[in-house]
């Protein structure tokens, strides 16, 4: 259960990215976050695991106040929240296996991980997660030798290494072609339905939202302007979210 209360973020320099955003996400939901570029979607997702420090409001996750957590507490909170990125954010020169194992860093003792020593069970788990996204055969490849779709699958495997209860997906398919987009979304859906992992996913295309999301929230200039079911987005709501001059394409 994720509760976001009056979340506000003002960047240094005065840009107001989030204004008083409040919503709740029950466990196991697939929530889509939509809005124009710059509407605050990425900031919202990054505030939840405090990659970005909120300037106001509170976030409760499983009744723990994330905004008040110490650096050490954050380690235990973050390791249960996987994250998937638009640009995959893999370490290009490391092997796929190392990239996936990095998902385990919140669990292993820092000392042993510094000398690249992971428990045997983590290696098995890494191979299992790579198998789930069907690229187990690429484990020893360098990450930058993989295609975009494959890299994003490594990103998902890395997130799944964390045994997450929630996955934050920041426009996971925005740099992929439509066919690949569906395959990546299908993996997220599978994880959501089979493992009961809560998914918060920011998306650009409404057809993806209709196809995969249980619920949608929309941001416009940092304000929450819509919270409801995907099919409730009619033409009026669409204009509220994307502005007067926007045209529906999908």
């Amino acid at each position: 259960m994720l509760k976001v209360q009056n979340l506000t973020k003002q960047y240094e320099g005065g840009v107001q990215a989030l204004r008083d955003v409040s919503f709740e996400v029950p466990k196991g939901q697939f929530l889509a976050v939509i809005g124009l570029s710059g509407s605050g979607k990425s900031t919202l997702l990054r505030c939840i695991n405090r990659l970005v420090e909120p300037t106001g409001g509170k976030i409760f996750w499983n009744d723990v106040d994330v905004t008040a957590a110490s650096e050490e507490d954050m380690r235990f909170i973050r390791r249960k929240i996987g994250m998937v990125f638009q640009h995959f954010n893999l370490v290009a020169r490391s092997s796929v296996l190392t990239n996936v194992l990095a998902g385990r860093l919140g669990y292993v003792n820092p000392f042993w991980s510094l000398i690249n020593k992971f428990p045997k069970s983590d290696y098995d788990k890494a191979m299992h997660e790579l198998g789930r996204v069907s690229i187990a055969d690429k484990a020893q490849y360098r990450a930058d030798e993989l295609s975009g779709g494959q890299q994003q699958r490594v990103g998902i495997a890395r997130a799944m290494m964390q045994d997450p209860e929630m996955i934050l997906a920041d426009e996971p398919v925005a740099s992929l072609d439509p066919v690949l987009a569906h395959s990546i979304m299908a993996y997220l859906e599978q994880i959501n339905q089979e493992e009961g992992v809560t998914v918060l996913c920011s998306l650009h295309f409404l057809d993806l939202v209709h196809r995969y999301a249980d619920r949608v929230i929309a941001l416009n200039e940092g304000r929450l302007v819509f919270d409801g079911l995907p099919q409730e987005i009619d033409d009026q709501k669409f204009k509220d979210i994307y502005g007067r001059d926007a045209e529906r394409v999908g």
């Binding site: 909170i77 995959f88 954010n89 860093l105 919140g106 820092p110």
Partner: peptide
């Protein structure tokens, strides 16, 4: 990007 991703897994500063 990679730094952000590794930090998000719960890795501490030295690990990232």
């Amino acid at each position: 990007g990679p730094m952000e991703a590794v930090t998000a897994t719960g890795a501490n500063r030295l690990q990232s």
